[in-house]
Write a protein that binds this DNA or RNA. Structure first.
Length: 659
RNA sequence: GCCGGAUUAGCUCAGCUGGUAGAGCAGCGGUUUUGUAAACCGAAGGUCACGGGUUCGAAUCCUGUAUCCGGCACCA
């Protein structure tokens, strides 16, 4: 007998080997009908899987959130069945559920076309209608390998060979089709439903390794209901409108062109945004005890050989050669330059921690396929800094940095999506003992700073040390590493950095490489998508447009603009001979946060009619008050508390509410 | 770099199976002085990404290249 504890706390006994279906049936007929999966001690199992042990037990229906991942996994199998029916000779490999959907990788000489996707989708719906029972079987490993080899499924055979000894080889059968799979699955293809859609066709390397053959990956999305599928499609369509490339063009922020692939031409408005963010970052660094430097853009190859970057990255570096035959490299990163500055003169332990920052313009010859809008470019600027410190200062510095990073993201309206710890790669400098310590220290620092979850990424660290990665998301949910904190014992050694300790002896400092934005370009791109171009006042390239109704108000409008500019606001004047409705529309489309409309009435009363982006209300107020209130509102968040204190000493001004 | 797709006016996009390119918006010239998300009229605007080929004839078919987009790989 086994003891099952139900969600309501009740406990019942069943025969060992009873299935979820049996148990559901013992409760009610309707539950038996609706049940599709069970959960035992947190593990999802097939409805018809005989239970061998007791525990916390739950019967799941199709509608329960936990079933969704299984629905997606089922749909990926249904797709594989459809593909093999339609395209005999295609080999299956793996097909997991992923966020919002699933994919399956196929090996087939002929490429699939977009037209094929429609046919596959059609066939999938037929398979759902066939209501094929999905049944789990456990096979002998050698029999399974021989079987899959015999039917030409070499990838599957390879997967089974790679399964750990002692792991059951389970094969799921649906109709005449079967696939090696760990499961679980719903009881039949009908249970998967038809709320799915094939979305993308892509190449993907077998086992994620570019030295392996490339497979064809078909992506799809799947949901529990048509309504959810529709909602998802609409959500993606809306999200695509926030794409920074689209907004960048529409708002005239920047452009890119063939003659400078992967590099950005910042237009006046985009550059204003850039400078606003840079100025903010500079103040934050200054407040946090950093000093700012500027190192050369181009340095001798020899320096990069010493640092170790040449050996690993020279193919990704831009180089140039002088008449005399020197080979120079355009800097792909800032650390060697900073170590040169550190090495000038003699440093004392009293100088540490030394936090050396640079808005460092870097160039990397990134693979063509890696380029992506302004997120991944070949010319970019890091908000880089290197903290030279003693070993016992690492944790405090790390925690301090993480706090700063979180505060910056908060000010910029961004949500930190994930923190990952990239561990030692295969090709690396430094001993295992040093790596053990470094990895532990970073993980502890993240914990100490209150990061609840740190995802471990084996093999993904830098060659000189492990790194904490701080990821943000773009409009459609892709994640991008922005912040980073890297602990480095190696470069100080290779570039011979040292300081004089309390004992009068030379010591090696430790280096923390760190960035908050990562690349200013990427960070600004993420901000564009996060705000969909509708920036808060402090960030908006144009903060206020003063628009006239008739030319009678031109003089007064100029005066309004002058007065707002005098308060430090970025103001544009629109005196065109157009209807005010036209002007309002145009500036609204351009995402200008505040439109100050002036007509004859306002001119006579020395007032302005403010209209906020996204609101159809107007607010008429005295020019003087408006100027003070808008200036206060436009104060960057790091200066806002000071600005507010300053304002309190002035005559009270009504805070203007955002519409 | 690899796999797939796209590339037509400044922008967003039509252009069926080959017959010689079209709209809206923007811009330009006029008219209009206007009260909160598009006033009206007019003229103009194109080596259909670039190169080669098939054809009497190519935006359309084939082929090469470039860039971009979606993935994969890469990311100091």
């Amino acid at each position: 007998m086994i003891d099952l504890i139900f969600p309501d706390g009740s406990k019942r006994q069943f025969d060992e080997g009873a299935t979820g279906r049996d148990i559901a049936a013992s409760i009610s007929k309707s539950l038996e009908k609706k049940a599709v999966l069970v959960k035992l001690d947190g593990e999802l199992l097939d409805l018809d899987r005989p239970l061998r042990r007791g525990g916390r037990f739950e019967i799941l229906t199709r509608e329960s959130p936990e079933a969704l991942e299984t629905i997606r996994h089922d749909v990926s199998h249904i797709m594989a069945e459809a593909v093999q029916e339609l395209f005999p000779g295609t080999q299956v490999t793996i097909g997991p559920a992923i966020e919002d959907g699933f994919y399956y990788d196929f090996a087939r000489a002929e490429p699939f076309s977009l037209e094929d996707l429609a046919r596959i989708e059609q066939r999938m719906k037929e398979i759902v209608d066939r209501d094929e029972a999905i049944q789990r079987e456990v096979w002998d490993r050698d029999v399974a390998i021989a079987h899959f080899e015999s039917i030409g499924e070499h990838y599957k055979a390879e997967i089974i060979q790679g399964l750990p000894e002692g792991e059951e080889v389970s094969v799921y059968r649906q109709g005449n089709w079967k696939d090696l799979c760990r499961g679980p699955h719903l009881p039949s293809t009908k249970a998967a439903g038809k709320a799915f859609k094939l979305t993308k066709l892509a190449g993907a390397y077998w086992r994620g390794d570019h030295r392996n053959p490339q497979l064809q990956r078909i992506y799809g999305t799947a949901w529990a209901s048509e309504a959810e599928l529709e909602a998802y499609i609409r959500r993606i369509e809306e999200a695509e409108k926030r794409d920074h490339r689209r907004i960048g063009k529409a708002m005239d922020l920047f452009h890119m062109q063939e003659e400078a692939k992967g590099m950005i031409f910042w237009h006046p408005k985009g550059w204003t945004l850039y400078r606003t963010v840079e100025a903010y970052m500079r103040r934050r660094l200054d407040d946090d005890g950093y000093v700012e430097v500027k190192a050369p853009q181009i340095m001798d190859r020899e320096l990069w050989e010493r640092s170790g970057h040449w050996a690993k990255f020279h193919q990704n570096m831009f180089t140039c050669e002088t008449e005399e035959g020197e080979i120079l490299a355009v800097k792909p990163m800032n650390c060697p330059g900073h170590v040169q500055i550190f090495n000038q003169g003699i440093k004392s332990y009293r100088d540490l921690p030394l936090r050396m920052a640079e808005f460092g313009a870097c160039h990397r010859y990134e693979p063509s396929g890696a380029l992506h809008g302004i997120f991944r470019v070949r010319g970019f600027t890091q908000d880089d800094a290197h903290i030279f410190c003693r070993e016992d200062q690492i944790e405090a510095e790390s925690t301090k940095f993480i706090r700063l990073l979180e505060s910056v993201y908060r000010d910029c309206g961004l949500e930190l999506h994930a923190v990952k710890l990239a561990l030692r790669p295969e090709l690396r400098f430094g001993t295992d003992e040093v790596w053990d310590v470094a990895e532990q220290k970073l993980e502890r620092a993240a914990k100490a700073a209150g990061i609840a979850h740190v995802e471990l990424l084996p093999n993904e660290g830098a060659f000189y040390g492990p790194k904490l990665e701080f990821h943000l998301r773009d409009a459609i949910g892709r994640t991008w590493q922005c912040g980073t904190l890297q602990l480095d014992y190696v470069l100080p050694e290779r570039l011979d950095a040292n300081y004089i300790g309390e004992d009068g002896e030379k010591h090696r400092p430790v280096m923390l490489h760190r960035a908050i934005c990562g690349s200013m370009e990427r960070f600004i791109g993420v901000m564009i998508e996060s705000y969909a171009g509708a920036f808060p006042l402090w960030l908006a390239p144009t903060q206020v447009v003063v628009a006239t109704i008739t030319s009678d108000a031109d003089d007064y409008a100029r005066q309004v603009a002058r007065e707002l500019k005098a308060k430090g606001l970025r103001v544009e004047l629109d005196l065109r001979n157009e209807k005010v409705g036209y002007k309002v529309r145009e500036h609204s489309v351009a995402k200008v946060p505040v439109i100050a409309v002036v007509g004859r009435r306002e001119a006579e009363e020395r007032k302005v009619a403010l209209r906020r982006l996204g609101s159809d209300q107007q607010q008429v107020a005295d020019l003087g008050q408006v100027a003070i209130a808008l200036a206060l509102e436009a104060t960057p968040p790091d200066l806002a508390p000071m600005a507010r204190e300053g304002a309190e000493s002035r005559p009270a001004v009504g805070v203007l509410e955002a519409g």
